[in-house]
C-alpha cells in the first residue's frame, strides 16, 4: 500500500530548524545542579528539581560522579571577554571545573560552546549567593591553562576555576540484590536516592515511582539524567511514596514531591 509520508514542506522546514537548533550553543540551565563545597567537592546528581535535589554534605552516593579539584582555585572579577590563566596542569588533572557568576545580565561563553545565560531576574531577589553552578570542561579546551571566557563588552562576571579530576562510582547493591544510588546516565537504579522537602534523605523504589508516574519512565529509551528527572519531576508532582533505607525494606518516611 502507499505508506503515509511526511509532507515535504514540513520536512524541509523542520530539517532547517533542527540543524539550527543543534548548531546553537548549549545553554546551561542555572540551578539545575547542586554542589556541595567542602573539604572535597562532591557532585551529587539526584532528582534535579528544587524539592528533590539532594545535597548530602561530602557523602558520595553510589552512582554519582565525583569531581575533585586537584589545584587551588583561581578566582577573580572580570569585564568583557577575558582569558583566565590557571597555570600548568597537575598530572592527575583530567578537566577544569569552572563556575561562572554574572554581575550584570548577559551571556557568558565557555570553550566548547556552553553558554551561561544570566537574565536580569537571576541577579535580583534574596538568593544573593547562588548555588555553585559548575561546568567541567576538558583540558583540551584550555590549552596551556588559558581559559577563555567570552562576555559582552562591559559585562561583569566572577569566575572560580580549578583543575579537577572526575570519577564515577557504580551503584551499590543491598542484601536483596537491588541496586541503589543516584540516577545516572544509564538510567535509574532499583532504589533511587532522594532528599525529601523536609530534608530527609533516603531511597524511593523505582517501581513505586513508575506507578506514580503511570507512564513510561522506566520504559522510555534511557534518556539523559536530565530527561529522566524532568519526566519524574513532571509526573510525580504531588504523589507520596514510601521512603526507604538502602535495604529497600525499612521504611523511614514518605517522599512527597512538591
Amino acid at each position: 500500500m502507499t505508506a503515509p509520508q511526511m509532507s515535504d514542506s514540513f520536512a524541509d522546514a523542520f530539517r532547517r530548524a533542527l540543524v539550527t537548533h543543534v548548531d546553537a550553543p548549549t545553554r546551561v540551565r542555572r540551578r539545575q545542579r547542586r554542589w556541595v563545597l567542602g573539604s572535597a567537592i562532591a557532585a551529587v546528581a539526584l532528582l534535579a528539581s528544587t524539592a528533590a535535589a539532594a545535597a548530602t554534605g561530602v557523602l558520595v552516593l553510589p552512582g554519582s560522579t565525583q569531581v575533585t579539584p586537584v589545584s587551588s582555585f583561581v578566582t577573580g572579577t572580570y569585564v568583557g571577554t577575558e582569558t583566565v590563566h590557571l597555570g600548568p596542569a597537575p598530572d592527575d588533572a583530567n578537566g577544569i571545573v569552572v563556575s561562572l557568576h554574572c554581575l550584570t545580565p548577559g551571556d557568558l561563553g565557555l570553550p566548547g560552546g556552553t553558554v551561561v545565560t544570566c537574565a536580569a531576574d537571576d541577579l535580583t531577589g534574596s538568593d544573593v549567593q547562588p548555588d555553585f553552578v559548575y561546568e567541567v570542561i576538558p583540558l583540551t579546551d584550555a590549552s596551556d591553562g588559558a581559559l577563555i571566557v567570552t562576555a559582552p563588552l562591559e559585562s561583569n562576571w566572577i569566575v572560580l576555576a580549578a583543575y579537577s579530576t572526575s570519577s564515577s562510582s557504580a551503584w551499590a547493591r543491598n542484601g536483596n540484590g537491588e541496586s541503589y544510588g543516584v540516577i545516572s546516565e544509564t538510567g535509574p537504579p532499583d532504589l533511587i536516592a532522594v532528599r525529601n522537602a523536609d530534608g530527609a534523605t533516603g531511597y524511593i523504589r523505582r517501581t513505586d515511582l513508575e506507578r506514580a508516574v503511570g507512564t513510561v519512565v522506566g520504559n522510555s529509551a534511557a534518556g539523559p539524567t536530565d530527561g529522566i528527572t524532568d519526566l519524574y519531576a513532571d509526573a510525580a508532582s504531588g504523589s507520596s511514596l514510601p521512603l526507604y533505607d538502602s535495604d529497600g525494606t525499612t521504611q523511614i518516611g514518605e517522599f512527597t514531591h512538591d
Partner: peptide, 14 residues
C-alpha cells in the same frame, strides 16, 4: 516525529 529528533539531540549523551 519532530519531537523525537529534537529529543535525540537533547538526550544525545545517553
Amino acid at each position: 516525529t519532530a519531537i523525537a529528533f529534537l529529543e535525540l539531540w537533547r538526550c544525545r549523551s545517553s
